[in-house]
Simulated scan of single mutants.
Amino acid sequence: MPLSIMKSGIRAAMLLSVCLAGRTVWSEEVQLSVQDVPQPLAAAVKQLETREGWGITYEEPPGQPSPKGSILLTYTVTDATRTDSKLQEEVLTRLLARQAGKDAPRFRLVQAGGLWHITPEQGSPLETPITLPRQERPLGEVLQRLCAEVTKQSGTQVELGKTTGLRLETRVTLEAVTREPARVVLARLLNTLPQRAAWTLRTQGPERKFVLSPHRIFRLTGGTPGPAPSK
């Protein structure tokens, strides 16, 4: 083979390698924005979940709901870093820092049971230690029993609300738990299903009871939800 042709082939192969490598470093700058809405942090969390497929729970603080507000957050993501727990933690930490104003409630970020949890600093009913026997029942019954136990142990009424995307008739096994935080038990239960799930916990009605609403994690921009963050 003539040397000139061989050199041309080598140059073409090198160019192809560069192009292929370029595809692996594709990145996107994302601008997450919620404008003048009630509970802006909850709205921003929902945007992150449906865009990135991250498992994030949101628990509303007791008392009055958050006032209207706006949040703007910019971050860079790639197909590789989207499933990186370090990026998820960084973005969520920056998101919490966007909560501003003297009337805005304060939140903290907790990782447990394969999910990220945004919880109020003054506490949540789901931090209550609960005790439940081992049981094999439909998912709906187990969730009802968990809510009843949280209500009993915390003295705060917690009811089961909407369960978007979950099949409540699916039989699940909950191993016995002894004085374990309800949040951890719930996260473990919902992440043994065929599809991952998260939840919101909001106050409702004049009696300010809490309504627990578990839901399947949907990534609306394509693909499947990323893996749970490593412990």
Rank of each mutant, 00 (worst) to 15 (best):
G69Y: 13
T203L: 14
S230Q: 14
S33N: 09
R145W: 10
K102Q: 14
Q135L: 07
R98T: 15
L139D: 04
E136V: 02
L201K: 12
Q144E: 15
P225I: 04
M6T: 05
K231R: 10
Q31G: 02
S213C: 09
A182P: 14
R82T: 04
P125W: 10
L139W: 00
S230G: 13
W54D: 10
Q195N: 09
V30E: 10
R183K: 08
L190Q: 03
L220R: 08
V110T: 00
R202K: 10
G63M: 09
E59P: 07
V211T: 13
L20G: 10
Q88C: 05
R145S: 14
P40K: 11
L41K: 06
A197Y: 01
L92M: 07
P2Q: 01
D103M: 03
P120L: 05
I217D: 06
V34M: 04
I71N: 10
K86C: 00
E169A: 12
S70Y: 06
I10G: 00
S33H: 13
D36A: 08
Q64E: 15
M14D: 03
P133V: 03
C19V: 14
V185Y: 01
Q204I: 03
Q47E: 09
T178Q: 14
R108E: 14
H117D: 01
Q195M: 03
S70N: 05
L186S: 08
R98L: 12
L201N: 05
E127Y: 07
G155D: 02
M6K: 10
E29G: 09
L115G: 01
L41F: 02
P38Y: 10
F107C: 05
E127F: 10
L115D: 14
T74E: 14
M6R: 15
G113H: 08
L166K: 06
L201M: 06
T78G: 14
Q35W: 04
G9P: 01
R219M: 09
L32V: 02
E141F: 03
F218D: 11
R183Y: 04
W199N: 08
Q122L: 07
V142I: 15
G226I: 12
P229G: 06
T221C: 01
L115P: 01
S213W: 02
S17N: 04
L87I: 02
S27D: 05
T24Q: 15
K231L: 11
R208P: 01
Q88L: 01
Q144W: 06
L193M: 08
E180Q: 13
I56A: 03
V91N: 04
S4L: 05
T163R: 11
L20F: 15
M14Y: 05
C19D: 05
G161M: 07
A187W: 08
T78P: 07
S124Q: 11
E49Y: 00
R137V: 01
I5E: 12
S17R: 07
I217A: 08
A176V: 00
T83E: 13
V45A: 13
V110C: 00
T128W: 11
V177H: 06
R171Y: 03
T24F: 08
T50L: 06
Q47W: 02
Y58K: 04
R171I: 09
